[in-house]
Structure formats: structure tokens, C-alpha cells
Simulated scan of single mutants.
Amino acid sequence: MVRIVFIPGYTEDPAIFDTLAPLLPAHQALRISNQEELSTGFTTKAPDVVRYAAYLAQKYAIRERDIVIGHSMGGWIGMHLKQQTGCKAILVGSFTDPKKVRMPYQQPFLLKILTYLGIIQGRRLNKTFKKLYPHDESRALYTYLLDRLPTFSRRYVWQQLKLIFSPVPALTVSPDIRIHARRDTVVKYPDEAYVQVAGDHFSVVFHAAEVAAPIQAFMQAVMPA
């Protein structure tokens, strides 16, 4: 049986897909909670996206028949699931090169220091991020995600950043679909071909019908009647 596997992004939970999921063809769905997995299941001391994808693939028996839809960091994880299992990978506001992430610091060692000093979750830094955020449409959601940061353990925040920025071998596979908003100020738009949608980084929520359209067409083309 074909499954749709939803993987959320940094600081997000599976609810990020609540608007999109009902618009897709009815199939068995699996929603991954990165917080749950990184807190209780995937407990390696050296997490990176390759190891995490291998863990998810084994735990949930993800195979070639499955379709992974990842938002932001979730798409990066989805690409490594495709690399390892041959599953389909659909990226929404995501990346195949972490350099596309608009983050002032990307060096894992420095990010670890900033995290464990409490700076990444600090009120001053997040107040600056909120002030600079340019999109009224998704401002409340962006603010909510930043406000969640202090509720997470520093270990969990560091695990997520390590999944994004730890060096890993280059991917040798490509996404089945890239969906991206040109006005995304969290992840730069791809150099490769992509389906452009309205909105910003959170088009998956605020323009779900537009995001769903190419996914629906893809699923109809590749899945048996």
C-alpha cells in the first residue's frame, strides 16, 4: 500500500500539514514528529541527516512505494530517505543544499556553542528575527514558531540544527517535485527547476490548494488507479 509520509521542518510539528493533507488523494498517511523521534527514539550522540533518515526508514519501513512530503528541514530529511530507499520525495519550501538556508551562522561547532549558551533560544535574538520578518500573511505563525523555541530542550534544538548543517555526502538523487515561493525569506529559492507558488516560506499553510495541485497531478501519474 502506498503511504504519504509527512515530515515537518525546524521547530515545526506535524500540524504544519493540517491544511494541505485533506487536499491530497486519500491514502494511508504517516506524520513524523521530529521532536518525538529525536527525544525518545533516535538517541545517537552523533546525529546527522543520513543517520536520522536511516533510523526513520527502518522504524517505519519506508520503501520505494512511499511518497515523502517534507516542508523545509523535512524535505532535506525526505531527500535522504529517497537516497536510501528509493521513495518519492516532494519538497515544499525546502532545499537539497543547506547553504540555501538563510541562517547567519552555519558552522556546526559555532551553532552548538550558541545553542548551549542559550543564545539561539534567547529572547533578544528572536525579538530581532520577529522585527525583521517581512511577511504579514504568515507573521503570526512565524512568531508562534519562534515563541516555541524556549520551550524546547537545548539538546533538541541542537539536534535539529545538526540535522541541517552537519556535513554529509552529497546527494545523488533529485526531488520528484520542488515547490517553492519566490518570496521565501527562510530558504532561498532553488537553482533547479521548481513549481512556483504564491506566499512565502509557509505557502504549505496559506496557499495549500496551490501547493496541492502539482502533488495531485504527480500522484495521479505515478500511482495505480
Rank of each mutant, 00 (worst) to 15 (best):
V5G: 14
F6E: 03
P8V: 11
P8F: 08
T11L: 12
T19N: 11
P22S: 00
P25A: 01
E36I: 13
E36V: 11
S39I: 09
S39Q: 10
G41T: 13
V50T: 11
A54Q: 11
Y55D: 05
Q58W: 00
R63I: 06
E64G: 06
H71P: 04
M73T: 08
M73V: 09
G75R: 04
H80R: 12
H80I: 01
L81G: 10
T85K: 09
A89I: 07
L91C: 09
V92G: 05
G93Y: 11
S94N: 03
F95N: 06
F95H: 13
T96C: 10
D97Y: 01
K99D: 14
P104V: 04
Q106P: 02
Q107E: 15
F109N: 08
K112C: 12
T115E: 09
L117T: 15
G118R: 03
I119W: 08
I120R: 07
Q121M: 01
K127Y: 06
Y133Q: 09
Y133K: 03
Y133A: 02
P134A: 07
P134G: 02
S138W: 01
R139H: 10
T143G: 02
R148K: 15
F152H: 14
R155D: 15
F165D: 05
F165S: 05
S166R: 00
S166Q: 10
L171Q: 09
T172S: 15
P175V: 00
I179L: 04
R183H: 10
T185F: 02
V187N: 02
D191I: 12
A193T: 14
Y194L: 12
V195E: 06
F202Q: 00
S203P: 04
V211H: 00
A212R: 06
P214E: 07
I215Q: 02
I215R: 04
M219D: 08
Q220E: 15
P224S: 14
A225M: 07
